[in-house]
Write a protein that binds this DNA or RNA. Structure first.
Lengths: 249, 249
DNA sequence: GCAAAAGTGTTCAATGTACACCCATGC
DNA sequence: GCATGGGTGTACATTGAACACTTTTGC
């Protein structure tokens, strides 16, 4: 008898938890846990982050990085990948857990802890498509140097992802993940300069890249206007993977 | 009227949530979130981790790293510090968020996501005291090279903390945090060797340390048996802090 | 022929690595 | 006087940093 009452109450409990409005989160004894993914790419010689415009409270009308609640039976990496797949056509993606942000005041009227990830993508692998994404009125690339007002603590999260990307880049050539499959050395150098926020010496950069044996000559060249064509390179996955242990120590 | 019923149900809900047994966690719509702290030190020329013996299910009788649930109004760093303070007399501690582990199967019969931290402490700052710590039957240092069977995924968490400590040590001299306030160069070198798991050249090591200007001569010497006394050094906090921007990039 | 970006080597400084012997002390 | 760990310097290799001119193309 007692057990049946508790079962009924638990069932009601579950339903209430499911439909409770945001503002009651803080009144329960639990935290919500989300993943948020900073998606970076390089496009038009600019380092850009994918932002969505929120069409629901809180922060309706503000921009934010894509995210979502972690499902009960889903591990956190899979949740991040799911968020990523909603917005992109992923393939051989660079996705890394960044940091977990959990200030009690980061989310209004609720305790929401977010496990932040960052991903490096080729711009060509992105589909900018709002359809089917509930609560989103727009989706756009934004230059990281010129961000609009952001929801929650997403400005801090993006800044931290840039810092981490910079640290990673000093150890291994992850900038490839941001470029088209075939790229010129100048484009590669430019991507390094955008991430590291400093100019690099052209000859030293090329020497270092070419001596690392991770580049493959494609024997193709750019066709451009009024200048010398540039050699296109691609990225030696096999050599990189064999060096991964070294690059990532 | 409807509001009152909901209020009563929510109150019952809160009570039930508070007292529900572990096995019903997974039946609710929420995750539990904990912090776990890997506490490292060097003692008797060994790298050691602080473990507690669990006196409650799950994993009763197994060893685990100290941890606890994050309170609703507490940020995650504070929760980690709270766990640390229960076991130690902290002062100027090195505490860093490590990684968030959230495999659905890591915790039996519940979904518990844990935000792992690691801390580097002087052995002298630890109090090994079980009193007042509910659910703990023992607390001991264990050599990281010789761990007992551990609860949950704590073996993985410890291993990851060692990897991270190694990476940090290559960038900045955090090994100080593990040693007594006054130490010999040989002790410092030994701590590097324990963390990096490789032998270092004595002359090169001393040259590097002494030229970095982060060591202060105390003009004190060890008094030992049948050997030459060794100079004791301490750690120049001022110089280190001014270099922190550099050490941590 | 000119604008615009591609491509190319050498020199120097700093840093890391290898390596072997004398010193101070307690017993 | 001997056992034990403390303390010391040089030579070489590797890596990073500075620096300016020629080449190829489209117009």
């Amino acid at each position: 008898m007692c057990f049946e009452i508790i079962s009924v109450l638990l069932a009601i409990n579950r339903i209430l938890l499911y439909y409770r409005p945001m503002r009651t989160f803080a009144e329960t004894k639990t935290h919500e846990v989300t993943v948020d993914v900073v998606i970076l790419t390089i496009h038009d010689n600019r380092l850009k982050v994918l932002l969505i415009k929120r069409d629901k409270e809180p922060f309706r009308g503000k921009w934010s990085i894509p995210g979502g609640f972690i499902r009960l039976s889903e591990n956190i990496d899979d949740a991040a990948l799911r968020v990523l797949k909603e917005k992109t056509t992923v393939s051989n993606i660079y996705l890394e857990q960044l940091y977990t942000f959990g200030d009690p005041l980061r989310y209004p009227n609720a305790r929401v802890i977010t496990c932040a990830y960052f991903a490096l993508l080729r711009a060509e692998d992105i589909k900018l498509d709002v359809k089917g994404t509930e609560g989103v009125s727009d989706i756009q690339w934004h230059e990281v140097e010129n961000l609009p007002p952001l929801a929650f603590d997403h400005k801090e999260i993006i800044e931290y992802s840039l810092k981490r990307t910079r640290e990673r880049l000093e150890l291994c050539p992850i900038a490839f993940q941001l470029l088209p499959k075939k790229f010129t050395l100048t484009e590669l150098q430019k991507s390094y300069e955008l991430i590291l926020k400093k100019d690099l010496d052209k000859r030293n950069f090329r020497k270092k890249m070419l001596s690392s044996n991770i580049l493959v000559e494609t024997n193709e060249y750019t066709k451009s206007v009024s200048k010398r064509p540039a050699a296109l390179y691609s990225f030696d996955n096999i050599t990189l993977n064999s060096k991964r242990g070294h690059f990532f120590s």
